[in-house]
């Protein structure tokens, strides 16, 4: 298409202000209408997932190589430790067997209905948010593997976060440390409910704690199951500091995640379709958690 020189010059001069205005507008309005962005985001993540995975492969192999060398160096020491651990575990196995049979008998006695089937899928981290105010990861499993919004992501150590976006072959997990993460939790033992809110630091904050029962450093924090978001008693972390702001050190090492497990407990959750991580939504769920007994 041919346009006259003055018109072209005008268009060129206006492009930059227009684009600056557009990006500012998008950034401000984005929170209001994230549904469209969500769809674009999911499609884009799905399309670029193979690229990210291939690009991440060299990094992963270097990391594996370093790991192998480390293992070779420490193999003797590890062997000693493993032997000890094995001894200990064999004793535990004995205990577990005894408890299992006892448990079965007792269940028969009270006609206990077992929980619904739990399935889980292992996922590799293919992208990291890479921002000072963002704590989320992109993993290489999606709706094809049965992943759905709201499902918890775990490592062997404990809870990592929850699924907030699902594409065909990718899913985004909001980590516990993200400023938009609000998880209903309970203090193990006393069963006092509280909320675990991310605040962009390494250790999320424990808020809405019952004033009657003080929280001690070292208390174990588990999911409370309220709100139907997560099942109760998933391990989350331990109370790290109680001076003023109560902070929780998560069991899962959120700083270096390579693999996570996304677990399907068959819960519907409290996240309806189109739910977006906004502070407003977060506050509403606080109110709900705070008002529940």
């Amino acid at each position: 298409m041919r346009v006259s020189a003055p018109v072209r010059a005008t268009v060129q001069r206006l492009t930059l202000p227009f684009l600056i205005f557009m990006s500012a507008l998008l950034a401000v309005l984005g929170k209001a209408d994230v549904l469209l962005f969500d769809r674009v985001r999911v499609v884009l993540a799905d399309v670029l997932a193979p690229v990210l995975q291939v690009a991440g492969e060299p990094i992963a192999s270097v990391s594996r190589a370093v790991g192998t060398v480390e293992n070779v160096i420490t193999v003797y020491h590890q062997n000693q430790e493993l032997k000890l651990e094995n001894q200990r575990l064999l004793q535990w196995q004995e205990v577990a067997r005894r408890l299992q049979s006892e448990n079965e008998e007792l269940r028969n006695l009270v006609k206990f209905a077992p929980q619904g089937a739990v399935s889980s899928v292992a996922a590799q981290v293919i992208a990291d948010s890479g921002g000072a105010f963002l704590h989320n990861i992109l993993v290489n499993v999606g709706s094809r593997e049965g992943v759905a919004r709201g499902q918890p992501a775990m490592t062997g150590d404990g809870l990592v976060g929850r699924v907030i976006e699902v594409g065909g072959r990718t899913a985004r997990i909001l980590l516990l440390t993200d400023i938009n993460s609000h998880i209903p939790v309970a203090i193990e033992g006393t069963h006092d409910h509280a909320m675990l809110n991310g605040d962009n630091s390494d250790e999320p904050r424990l808020v809405y704690v019952q004033p009657k029962t003080p929280v001690k450093s070292g208390d174990r924090i588990v999911t409370s199951g309220s709100g139907g978001m997560f099942p109760p008693d998933l391990p989350v972390g331990v109370v790290a500091s109680v001076g003023g702001v109560i902070r929780v050190e998560t069991y899962a090492d959120l700083a270096r995640l390579e693999m996570v497990r996304i677990v399907n407990y068959g819960l519907d959750g409290i996240l309806p379709d189109g739910w977006v991580p906004t502070p407003q939504a977060g506050r509403r769920s606080h109110a709900r958690a705070a008002s529940s007994p």
Binding site: S23, L25, G30, F37, V40, A45, A127, L134, E165
Partner: peptide, 20 residues
């Protein structure tokens, strides 16, 4: 925009604004 869409920020357009 690509960066914002891929890193999952709720503020799509912020990186575009900063880069511009």
């Amino acid at each position: 925009l690509l960066l914002d869409l891929l890193n999952g920020t709720p503020y799509v357009g912020l990186s575009a604004l900063a880069l511009l």
